[in-house]
Design a protein around this nucleic acid. Structure first.
Lengths: 202, 202
DNA sequence: TGAAAAGTAAACTGCTCAGTGTATGATTGA
DNA sequence: TCAATCATACACTGAGCAGTTTACTTTTCA
């Protein structure tokens, strides 16, 4: 072979990249297969040899974006580390995910698809939700360790999460607001932790 | 006339109602004028006699939804009333708006339109945002009155708002989650106010 | 009551789109 | 080198869409 990959693999990759760009820019309905093929510099027939339909192509794009945003490690609860620092780290990590371009693309595409056809993106949204377990586990551990007030763990996790997402996710996803700078992220996380600990710290 | 309204008024109303339903269900691109006309039990030509184009019809729908969700009065800050009760009332009022069907429809349609074509819904989104001024004014007044810690008013307002919207607006708008019951609303508002006052009360 | 205003059905234009069929040329790996 | 695999160009089908035209009927109101 004359290149690093077989031709067919390069073509497939070009199609996927083009499809991501087009779906992202125009959504599912307004994206035409012809335009994707043109952008990928691939014949329409080749595209259809790789993907049996527009729906299948869309599903594959969701899978690709999903995988590329799936590299997050958990921050475990540590008995001996200070609460504030641990929570800060947790929130900063969460915001890193929320501000990740792949994740944002995924969320936007999924939400756009969802608003119009619930069934299409339902499982994707379920997976999105399940990915956010981190906070719950940490809070539960801290409660058991006696360093956070016992009580409704889900509610506490939801509150913490809302505080972050309300400024660092929803406006960006739904209204195209600019992403927060690292400095802004730190300020937001710090304020959220202060608020949270004022009420939940033992 | 044989009825409460002139025929032409009834037809116009039927078109608007059908258009709301269709745009809401399918979004702008996937909604066909033929289907709107059929749903309204109106000939296509009649529709075009009332509205010169699909874009104009869409714009009118946004205006109608906007007006029908525009009936909110302000809750003013009162020096002599207890903080907790006042905040609760404020948040419950906010949630009433967020859970209003017209407002939800408007937000969904605007967001869907936005994700695909920023310019189309930009001004609508601006107006949506401006409608949420209430919290800021109240907090600022309470700060000046010495009953809330002075500090970053916008941040405090944003936090309070995030706490509410994170559970009572974004999941409903973007993911079709069911609306909160009044009981759930009260619990959410109560928890948000507790958290808020733990940190901000003097 | 009668003319103007509004509604109707249905066909039609010109367009875009998803997906297929085909004949031909390039790439690959044994 | 050679046969199998894959890519390409392009024409085509069948469908849906926005918007228009026409010939006709119903409603309104003075």
């Amino acid at each position: 072979m004359t290149s690093t990959q077989r031709l067919t693999d390069r073509k497939r990759e070009a199609i996927i990249q083009a499809a991501i760009a087009e779906f992202r820019a125009n959504g599912f309905v307004a994206t035409s297969v012809d335009k994707v093929a043109a952008r990928a510099e691939v014949s329409k027939r080749t595209l259809y040899n790789h993907f049996p339909s527009k729906d299948e192509l869309f599903a594959e794009i969701l899978r690709v974006l999903w995988r590329s945003s799936s590299s997050q490690e958990e921050v475990p609860y540590r008995t001996n580390a200070p609460m504030r620092a641990q929570l800060l780290e947790l929130l900063m990590q969460k915001m890193a995910l929320l501000a990740d371009d792949s994740f944002l693309d995924l969320a936007r595409v999924a939400i756009a698809a969802f608003i119009h056809s619930p069934e299409r993106a339902q499982d994707m949204i379920n997976r999105l939700g399940q990915k956010e377990g981190g906070l719950y586990g940490w809070i539960r551990a801290a409660q058991k360790d006696g360093r956070l007030k016992p009580g409704d763990t889900s509610l506490a996790a939801q509150q913490l999460e809302s505080l972050v997402k309300g400024a660092a996710f929803w406006p960006q996803v739904t209204m195209g607001q600019p992403k927060l700078s690292t400095r802004e992220q730190r300020k937001l996380a710090s304020a959220a932790v202060d608020l949270f600990l004022s009420h939940y710290a033992v």
